[in-house]
Measured scan of single mutants.
Amino acid sequence: NQASVVANQLIPINTALTLVMMRAEVVTPMGIPAVDIPRLVSMQVNRAVPLGTTLMPDMVKGYA
């Protein structure tokens, strides 16, 4: 099973992602693959992402 990107903290809307905000976890359903974490750094979320939420492609501006 491939790990997905999960929020390590509450990420407010329009926040630029940093490594500290994300962790890799095997979850269902799968979200953004953990291998993409370096690519996500400095991209912004388009909604508030609660702690423990799996990041989906439509939550990150410019990802999809």
Rank of each mutant, 00 (worst) to 15 (best):
N1H: 11
N1E: 15
N1V: 15
N1T: 15
N1L: 14
N1F: 15
Q2C: 15
A3Q: 08
A3F: 09
A3G: 08
A3M: 09
A3T: 11
S4N: 01
S4M: 02
S4E: 01
S4R: 02
S4W: 02
S4Y: 03
S4C: 05
S4P: 00
S4T: 11
V5R: 01
V5S: 04
V5K: 01
V5P: 01
V5Q: 00
V5A: 08
V5W: 02
V6Q: 04
V6I: 13
V6M: 13
V6C: 15
V6R: 04
V6S: 04
A7Y: 01
A7R: 02
A7K: 01
A7S: 09
A7F: 01
A7Q: 01
N8Y: 07
N8S: 15
N8T: 14
Q9H: 11
Q9R: 08
Q9I: 12
Q9T: 11
Q9L: 11
L10R: 11
L10M: 09
L10A: 06
L10W: 09
I11E: 01
I11W: 02
I11K: 00
P12E: 10
P12A: 11
P12W: 05
P12Y: 09
I13H: 12
I13W: 13
I13Y: 10
N14P: 02
N14M: 07
N14L: 05
N14C: 07
N14K: 06
N14G: 10
N14E: 09
T15C: 05
T15P: 01
T15H: 09
T15K: 04
T15S: 06
T15A: 09
A16L: 09
A16Q: 14
A16H: 08
A16S: 14
A16E: 05
A16V: 10
A16P: 14
L17M: 11
L17P: 02
T18W: 03
T18F: 07
T18V: 09
T18M: 08
T18R: 07
L19Y: 10
L19P: 06
L19K: 04
V20G: 08
V20N: 11
V20K: 07
V20C: 10
V20Y: 14
V20L: 14
V20T: 11
V20A: 12
M21R: 03
M21K: 03
M21W: 02
M21N: 05
M21I: 04
M22H: 00
M22T: 02
M22F: 10
M22D: 00
M22A: 00
M22G: 00
M22R: 00
M22Q: 01
R23A: 06
R23C: 04
R23K: 10
A24N: 14
A24C: 06
A24V: 11
E25A: 09
E25F: 05
E25K: 04
E25Y: 04
E25G: 05
E25P: 01
V26E: 15
V26T: 12
V26S: 15
V26G: 11
V26Q: 14
V26L: 07
V27G: 03
V27T: 12
V27E: 03
V27C: 05
T28D: 15
P29K: 11
P29T: 13
P29R: 03
P29W: 08
P29G: 05
P29V: 12
P29S: 07
M30Y: 14
M30E: 15
M30I: 14
M30N: 11
M30R: 03
G31P: 00
G31K: 01
G31L: 01
G31W: 02
G31I: 02
I32F: 03
I32D: 01
P33V: 05
P33D: 15
P33M: 07
P33T: 13
P33G: 13
A34S: 12
A34I: 07
A34L: 03
V35L: 09
V35R: 04
V35A: 12
V35F: 10
V35N: 13
D36K: 04
D36P: 01
D36I: 05
I37N: 01
I37T: 13
P38F: 10
P38S: 12
P38E: 08
R39H: 06
R39M: 11
R39P: 03
R39W: 11
R39N: 05
R39A: 09
L40Q: 00
L40C: 04
L40N: 00
L40G: 00
L40Y: 02
L40E: 00
L40F: 02
L40A: 01
V41N: 06
V41F: 10
V41S: 03
V41L: 14
V41E: 07
S42T: 08
M43N: 07
M43H: 05
M43V: 04
M43L: 12
Q44A: 08
Q44H: 07
Q44R: 10
Q44E: 05
Q44V: 12
Q44F: 14
Q44P: 12
Q44M: 12
V45I: 08
V45H: 00
N46A: 08
N46Q: 12
N46Y: 14
N46P: 03
R47K: 12
R47A: 10
R47T: 09
R47G: 10
R47Q: 14
R47V: 09
A48S: 08
A48P: 07
A48Q: 10
V49D: 01
V49F: 02
V49R: 03
V49K: 00
P50A: 09
P50S: 12
P50I: 10
P50Q: 06
L51P: 07
L51R: 13
L51W: 10
G52P: 00
G52T: 03
T53G: 11
T53M: 14
T53H: 10
T53Q: 14
T53E: 07
T54A: 07
T54S: 07
T54W: 02
T54I: 15
L55Y: 01
L55K: 00
L55M: 12
L55G: 01
L55V: 13
L55A: 00
M56D: 07
M56V: 08
M56P: 01
M56H: 10
P57H: 11
P57D: 09
P57T: 05
P57F: 10
P57K: 09
P57Q: 11
P57L: 06
D58E: 14
D58K: 09
D58T: 13
D58F: 11
D58R: 05
D58L: 09
M59A: 11
M59G: 03
M59T: 08
M59F: 12
M59D: 13
M59H: 08
V60F: 05
V60Y: 01
V60S: 01
K61R: 11
K61L: 15
K61G: 06
G62H: 13
G62K: 11
G62S: 14
G62C: 12
G62D: 10
G62W: 11
G62N: 14
G62Q: 14
G62E: 14
G62T: 08
Y63D: 03
Y63E: 04
Y63Q: 04
Y63P: 03
Y63F: 12
A64Q: 15
A64E: 08
A64N: 09
A64I: 15
A64V: 10
